Simulated assay, not measured.
Amino acid sequence: MIGDIFLEWADRYGDYVLLLVPAIAFLEASVGIGLFVSGAILLSVCTMLYTQGIATLYQMLPLAFLGATSADHIGYFLGRRAGPAFHHTRFAQRYASRLDKTEQLLTKHGELSIILGR
């Protein structure tokens, strides 16, 4: 049923259907929004596009990569900008010990902790 609705939409807006891939990848990798947008949605959309012959893997992979890395970069820069002010919020003060442990983990293991967390 939802597949039929998606295919109807894809037929109607064929020129823009590939923009769903980076958009969903962006939402899935975004800070906060990614809690509600599952990677399974991106997988389902890409499967539909591929099986219907609308897009190839060589088209979708770079688009998904672009969307996800864009969200990661925006999240990083938001964290750099808003991070220091975040430590003075009531929420951060309530969970100060957990935040300290997290920062120690990131300082100690650096890139590996981010890769494993991702």
Results as ranks from 00 to 15, higher is better:
residue 80 R to I: 07
residue 38 S to Y: 02
residue 50 Y to V: 09
residue 95 Y to H: 13
residue 18 L to P: 02
residue 45 V to K: 03
residue 20 L to N: 09
residue 111 E to D: 07
residue 72 D to V: 07
residue 30 S to T: 12
residue 17 V to Y: 03
residue 36 F to V: 11
residue 48 M to R: 00
residue 36 F to H: 00
residue 101 K to N: 12
residue 37 V to P: 01
residue 93 Q to L: 08
residue 92 A to R: 06
residue 27 L to T: 02
residue 97 S to A: 12
residue 43 L to Q: 00
residue 29 A to R: 03
residue 26 F to C: 06
residue 50 Y to N: 03
residue 76 Y to M: 05
residue 52 Q to V: 02
residue 24 I to F: 01
residue 84 P to A: 04
residue 27 L to N: 01
residue 20 L to V: 00
residue 105 L to W: 09
residue 110 G to S: 09
residue 97 S to N: 07
residue 62 P to K: 14
residue 43 L to I: 04
residue 98 R to G: 14
residue 15 D to E: 15
residue 51 T to K: 03
residue 41 I to T: 10
residue 25 A to G: 04
residue 26 F to T: 03
residue 44 S to A: 13
residue 12 R to Q: 14
residue 18 L to I: 10
residue 30 S to I: 01
residue 59 Q to M: 05
residue 96 A to W: 02
residue 40 A to S: 14
residue 107 T to R: 15
residue 11 D to M: 10
residue 19 L to I: 11
residue 12 R to G: 09
residue 86 F to T: 04
residue 26 F to Q: 02
residue 86 F to D: 00
residue 85 A to P: 07
residue 58 Y to E: 09
residue 62 P to L: 07
residue 61 L to A: 14
residue 17 V to F: 02
residue 7 L to T: 02
residue 89 T to Y: 01
residue 80 R to H: 04
residue 18 L to W: 07
residue 28 E to Q: 10
residue 50 Y to M: 05
residue 63 L to C: 10
residue 56 T to P: 05
residue 35 L to N: 08
residue 73 H to A: 14
residue 90 R to W: 08
residue 63 L to K: 03
residue 66 L to W: 04
residue 42 L to K: 08
residue 17 V to M: 15
residue 48 M to V: 06
residue 56 T to M: 07
residue 102 T to F: 13
residue 31 V to E: 01
residue 31 V to A: 12
residue 78 L to K: 04
residue 73 H to C: 13
residue 99 L to F: 12
residue 2 I to C: 02
residue 90 R to I: 04
residue 63 L to Y: 07
residue 16 Y to T: 04
residue 85 A to W: 12
residue 32 G to L: 15
residue 38 S to I: 00
residue 77 F to A: 00
residue 61 L to M: 10
residue 3 G to Q: 13
residue 36 F to P: 01
residue 54 I to D: 00
residue 71 A to F: 02
residue 94 R to F: 06
residue 103 E to N: 11
residue 68 A to S: 15
residue 49 L to E: 04
residue 70 S to M: 14
residue 54 I to E: 01
residue 105 L to Y: 05
residue 35 L to M: 13
residue 13 Y to M: 01
residue 55 A to S: 08
residue 72 D to M: 11
residue 107 T to W: 05
residue 88 H to S: 11
residue 46 C to G: 08
residue 12 R to L: 13
residue 37 V to Y: 05
residue 105 L to V: 06
residue 112 L to S: 07
residue 40 A to P: 00
residue 57 L to C: 00
residue 36 F to A: 09
residue 13 Y to P: 06
residue 81 R to L: 07
residue 71 A to W: 02
residue 52 Q to K: 10
residue 23 A to L: 13
residue 51 T to R: 03
residue 106 L to P: 00
residue 29 A to D: 09
residue 82 A to M: 13
residue 4 D to M: 08
residue 100 D to K: 11
residue 38 S to A: 12
residue 118 R to W: 13
residue 53 G to F: 01
residue 58 Y to L: 02
residue 66 L to I: 12
residue 12 R to E: 15
residue 56 T to W: 03
residue 78 L to C: 10
